[in-house]
Amino acid sequence: MHLTTEAVRELAFCARIELHDEELPALTRDLNAIMDSLEPITHFELDEVEPTYHPIAGLVNVTREDVAKPCLTQQEALSNAPFTQDGQFKIPPILADAGGTR
């Protein structure tokens, strides 16, 4: 087995997703089944094989000229925000945050 329910709880905290105790067993079972199916990846002789991170051979960094271009206005940028105040994104207090529901 790759993951215990405790390990899944820890992963969920890292990914900032709240999980309830009753969700953990089924999720742990699914994740372990998926991990089992990934087994073939560990069976190859890979010494000296370079990794491929994207499919376009020879494409390295692509940059543009460092010139300012039009962008969203402040009003546009805020228009999809759940909560705003005084032209800014509004969030709960962070200084008193003891680390959530871990």
Binding site: F13, R16, I17, E18, P92, I94, G100, T101
Partner: peptide, 11 residues
């Protein structure tokens, strides 16, 4: 708290 907002909103 911010962490609670992240965790519950994403869940």
């Amino acid at each position: 708290t911010m962490t609670e907002q992240y965790e519950r909103s994403r869940a």
